[in-house]
Amino acid sequence: MAEKPAMPASWRVESKPHKFCPGCGHGIALRALGQAIDELGIQDRTVFGCDIGCSLLAWDFFNVDTIQTHHGRTTPVMVGVKRANPDLICIAYMGDGGGYAIGAQHLVNAASRNDKITAILINNTQYAMTGGQMAPTTMPGQKTETTPYGRDPELTGLPAQGPEMIATITPEGAYVARGTVSKLRQLKKMMVRALKCQMEGRGFSFIEVLSTCPTNWRTNARETWSFLEEKMPQYFQIGEIKIPVSEGDADE
């Protein structure tokens, strides 16, 4: 069976193969998102916003209206669209630097206001497009271009716990989860739930996605996978953290 799995219908065939590095997790996260858009039948009213950093490479990824914004500012642009036209389904797609560092005030305030948008944040433990600097998500001891001897928590703190923070500051009705590109079906389910949360007007929805960056991690395939599957979960717990009450069952 040499047949490849079909692309989600909401993907834009003309812009494939996509622009991400070999082994990058963005393609898998965007597959899960594309499948969720297909399943919910919202391609015609979805607005996809992407940030600066590797996420910007998704500017022509979907057959969906897309706005590529400024670093950290995708959240407010999507908030602005949603407030102006609540019929649209607004997705702010960003990296860990965009969400937890330069755009942290926007993420925190959009969550606090319970804006009815969906934020998806790719956590690959560093700034990838600029060449692998420390991010808020870099793990203790992890070597990056700005922590060449390993991240020292005494000097630069511990990895940001984004979903846990967002879960704390959002009211009931919000949806918060942390998924991983190694579990596509679970990730897709999270995306569906997050988007449904927005569609039903329950509240803010947020998914952090653990992802891979062999280019900057300088890892081969096996090491990349073990970084994602073994190292990252030591600091980042996978699962649904906050689900609307009537949603019922949590993670399978």
Binding site: V77, V81, H106
Partner: peptide, 26 residues
């Protein structure tokens, strides 16, 4: 008509960008 008080002027500007792109006189 609508109003949103934002967290700072970066956000006030970028939400205005969003409102305009949604086709509203923002």
């Amino acid at each position: 008509r609508k109003f949103l008080q934002t967290e700072d002027e970066l956000s006030a500007g970028f939400t205005t960008v969003g409102g305009v792109m949604a086709g509203k006189r923002a």
